[in-house]
């Protein structure tokens, strides 16, 4: 079981490393979007500090959206997805392997680069730590939920736009509590713990249910 999961995971990572541009575009998109706001709204310290958490989170949402389209599309085009469906392995497990690989390649780099880009917003040290932790919990949820949408819109013309319309509303809770945790961390008496509990709950729930839903959606898309 674990072997199969690891096989899909290492396969997707190997593939991405041989085609690095896909990974880098997502990362640079994130960096550029986050850097554009200070240029647009001016360099007033308090204003930027207020905007920061929201901007970083929205940029993370969009960057993860951008990468989603390719989650199943390449495998669909060359027929390997068909073969994955016929391997005799639980499809949800294979999907989970692909999603984890996708997060390691597109989500984790955002988490790691976040402190650097957040410096433009004059966030405090604590706020930056909280932001990293919140992103680390939240971006996997984005990948997991996004996988359902990517599976549903597979092979459709103009699937990219449809995918955004389907998935972005579902990202709202993650955005609210993810950015909320960072904003709240600026207030000394406030406690960020409830935010992290909620983000963890989202992660648990989506890790359990999203692969099953995405697997079902893939079967429909391939018919």
């Amino acid at each position: 079981m674990l072997k199969v999961f690891y096989c899909v995971l290492s396969r997707d990572i190997t593939l991405a490393l041989r085609r690095r541009t896909d990974v880098l575009t997502t990362l640079f998109f994130f960096i550029i979007v986050v850097s554009l706001f200070p240029l647009g709204v001016g360099s007033e310290r308090e204003q930027l500090r207020m905007l920061g958490p929201g901007v970083v989170w929205v940029a993370a949402l969009l960057a993860s959206m951008l990468a989603l389209e390719r989650l199943f599309a390449a495998d669909y085009d060359d027929g390997t997805l068909e073969q994955l469906l016929l391997t005799g392995q639980p499809l949800a497990l294979l999907v989970l392997g692909k999603v984890v690989a996708h997060w390691l390649l597109t989500g984790l780099p955002l988490v790691l680069i976040a402190p650097l880009v957040a410096m433009q917003y004059h966030l405090s040290g604590t706020a930056i730590w909280v932001m990293m932790a919140a992103l680390a919990l939240g971006t996997p949820v984005l990948s997991l939920i996004g996988a359902i949408g990517a599976a549903l819109t597979l092979g459709l013309r103009g699937g990219g736009i449809l995918l955004s319309l389907l998935i972005l509303p579902l990202y709202v809770p993650v955005l609210v509590y993810g950015a909320g945790a960072v904003s709240v961390s600026a207030i000394e008496i406030a406690d960020t713990q409830p935010y992290f509990y909620l983000l963890s709950a989202f992660l648990m729930g989506s890790a359990l249910l999203a692969p099953l839903a995405a697997a079902a959606a893939l079967r429909i898309s391939l018919e």
């Binding site: 190997t14 060359d78 027929g79 994955l84």
Partner: peptide, 27 residues
Amino acid sequence: LYFGHLNGIKADLTGLENLRIASTLDQ
């Protein structure tokens, strides 16, 4: 074992890797 119109192999992987992955997934 199904062999469709699409070859079902990854262009960025070598023949060796393609077959190793396929056979691992076939348990």
